[in-house]
Simulated assay, not measured.
Amino acid sequence: MKRLPTAYLLFFALVMPIWLIYMITQNGFSFYNDHWAAPVTMFFGSFVAGATSEGGGAVAFPVFTLLLKLPPPVARNFSFAIQSIGMTSASLLIISLKIPVDWRAIRTVTIGGIPGLLFGAFFVVPLISGPMTKIFFVSLWLSFAFALYLANRKTDRVTTNGLGPLKVVDLVRIVGFGFVGGVITAIFGDGINIFTFCLFTLYYSTSEKVATPTSIIIMTIHTIVGFLLHVFVLHDFQPMTFQYWMCAIPVAILMAPLGAYIINFLTREAIAKFLYITTVVQYIGALIALRPPTVVVLISFGTVVGGFLFFWWLSTIRSGPSPKPSAYVPLNS
């Protein structure tokens, strides 16, 4: 007998009636006249969020800032808001269907990630300009795509289905990556998922099939914290962002879990190729849309090269013998 995604179905049954009542009583369907681009964007973005280590913000942020010319704070807050629906849906589907994840990795990353998110929101975000935020986002992920591509070209690359035995230094490393990823997430509304995905796949040789759903749950936890932070603490959740959010909720709640379901049937090589394509398209699109001045282009190339060297170094410094494939980490571990 096939397992039903009970947790996801309950979430769907809770969210959609509330959304429908609001849209009917508050004339919310009129939002679509000006904000139709949000559901169109998230039709693809939410699928990417559920199917890869990139959150929905990885699509929403560049589209909103580069094509729709919206300020980065609006795009960031929208990313938090829509991921609170889409990635929560995907995570509940993953848990309900018992798709293998590494819960130890999730717990350890969160220890560093939430403090990093708070630190970034209060002390880093105010220092970064709009244009640099946009170009840094796409440059960093392009560098990761290059490193993952080269790592996967190794015919002798062996992957595992979990982090394996961890020493104290490993825990410190994972917490540190979580902190940095939290800071990145505070800037873009997305990032800790793919940043820790880099660590899991390149350093710990975790299979993309396990690292992907693991990173989705990691991003879900941090996107909910980020969403609540901006709504109830920073009080900077803009009315425009709210209207975009309302327009995209039905799409996100369906497409993100669909992506999470489909990805369970793909090979890790197919998942990696999908990541290559999305990051390259994002970067080219950013250069075309922004047409940045020479100095920004140089900074972008420097970020790509520096990030690539870091991620490539990460994939080569793992000491000891090649890891042996192991059983999936149980959900209750």
Rank of each mutant, 00 (worst) to 15 (best):
A7S: 14
F11G: 05
F12C: 07
A13R: 02
I18V: 15
I18S: 14
L20A: 12
I24P: 00
Q26W: 06
F29V: 00
H35V: 06
A38I: 13
P39E: 09
P39D: 03
V40R: 09
T41G: 15
M42R: 04
G45L: 04
T52Q: 02
S53R: 04
G55P: 04
G55H: 03
G57S: 15
L70M: 11
V74R: 12
A81M: 13
I82Y: 09
S84T: 03
S84K: 09
I85Q: 10
A90M: 12
A90W: 05
S91G: 06
I94W: 13
S96E: 14
K98G: 04
D102T: 06
R107E: 06
R107H: 00
G113P: 02
I114F: 13
P115M: 08
G116Y: 00
G116E: 04
F123M: 02
V124F: 13
V124A: 11
L127R: 11
M132W: 13
I135Q: 05
I135E: 08
I135R: 05
W141R: 02
S143E: 09
A145V: 14
A147S: 14
A151R: 12
D156G: 11
D156K: 06
V158F: 10
L166V: 08
V168N: 05
D170N: 06
V175F: 04
F177W: 10
I184P: 09
F188K: 03
I192D: 00
I194Y: 09
T196Q: 05
Y203F: 09
Y203P: 01
Y204T: 03
S205L: 00
T206C: 15
E208W: 12
A211F: 09
S215I: 01
I216V: 14
I217T: 07
M219R: 03
T220A: 09
T220S: 08
L229P: 06
H235R: 13
D236A: 08
M240W: 02
W245V: 07
M246G: 03
A248I: 12
I249M: 06
I249K: 05
P250K: 09
L254H: 10
G259A: 02
F265G: 03
F265E: 10
F265R: 14
L266H: 01
T267S: 15
K273Y: 11
L275R: 02
Y276T: 02
V280F: 04
V280Q: 04
A286M: 07
L290V: 07
L290N: 00
L290H: 00
P292F: 08
T294N: 14
T294D: 08
V297R: 09
L298I: 14
S300Q: 03
T303E: 11
G306S: 12
F308G: 12
W312Q: 01
I317D: 05
S319I: 10
